[in-house]
């Protein structure tokens, strides 16, 4: 029931199951994520969309009692295989969280954090990376003259864009976004959405959202999840206008959710 979208696949799962203790949160998920596209995962609360997203960079490792079965592939390699370098995986597959989570450091240090932990020491290079990342995140103009101020002094929307800049600074090829706008006002949301549009030229973006309009606006592919299953997956236009499944249609038309 899940199609393979046209472009080259960068992330793929085959029959992925996930349990939190005794509760199965993901059931037999098979999905192919195309490179350099924006893919949206939608569905009601608790459907497993964030859990699936967190499988792509193995963030679920941090959850006690979490167990995974089935395959999750990145560039064709099984990321759950023993000995797989999860640190390297997370460097390549960046993540932006639902709640902006800048470190309690300065704006500059937040962005420079990634390059620094990956061994970059040269100040000039760091300066350049910080500026480039902040520009890419459309934040540079707002913070240019206060880079040394604490990041926690920024507004929520700015903090979220800072987190995006922070992610960009390590030059990932995939960016996972877990409801990045849910804590933001409409203006800040619009800015992030524009940003996503820019980002897809260079990055693969996977975004989880409960906001269907947002999914429709920013994504090229959409997966609809319900109760831990991937109900429907295809091109956004098709999913929203001609859903193949009755469940999807009911959700999209607002009959539940």
């Amino acid at each position: 029931m899940t199609g393979t979208p046209a472009p080259g696949t960068i992330i793929e799962t085959r029959g992925l199951d996930l349990w939190y203790g005794p509760c199965q949160a993901l059931k037999e998920i098979t999905i192919l994520i195309p490179a350099n596209r924006v893919t949206a995962l939608i569905g009601p609360s608790g459907c497993g969309k964030s859990t699936l997203l967190r499988c792509f960079n193995r963030m679920n490792d941090l959850v006690p009692d979490c167990r995974v079965a089935g395959l999750a592939l990145y560039h064709g390699a099984d990321i759950n295989a023993p000995g797989y370098d999860v640190v390297e995986l997370r460097k390549r597959v960046g993540m932006v969280f639902q709640k902006p989570n800048p470190f309690p450091k300065s704006i500059y240090e937040n962005v420079a954090y990634g390059p620094r932990i990956h061994g970059e020491r040269d100040r000039a290079t760091l300066d350049a990376v910080v500026e480039r990342s902040l520009r890419s995140a459309a934040l540079w103009d707002e913070v240019e003259d206060r880079l040394q101020e604490p990041a926690l002094g920024l507004s929520g929307g700015q903090q979220q864009r800072l987190c995006i800049a922070r992610t960009l600074a390590v030059e990932p090829d995939v960016i996972l976004m877990d409801e990045p706008c849910s804590a933001l006002d409409p203006i800040a949301t619009a800015k992030i959405e524009n940003l996503i549009d820019d980002l897809k030229k260079r990055y693969t973006v996977i975004i989880v959202t409960h906001n269907m309009q947002q999914a429709a606006r920013v994504s090229e592919f959409t997966g609809f999840m319900y109760l831990g299953e991937l109900v429907e997956y295809g091109e956004t236009l098709q999913v929203f206008e001609r859903p193949a499944e009755r469940l999807t249609e009911n959700y999209i038309t607002g009959r539940f959710g």
């Binding site: 941090l62 640190v87 995986l89 997370r90 960046g94 993540m95 969280f97 470190f103 954090y113 932990i117």
Partner: peptide, 21 residues
């Protein structure tokens, strides 16, 4: 916990995360 996740998601090792964040 968000700070830890933020750091780990950037590809920091656990010790880097603990020490710096």
């Amino acid at each position: 916990q968000g700070l830890r996740e933020g750091s780990l998601a950037l590809g920091a090792t656990q010790w880097q995360t603990v020490r710096r964040v």
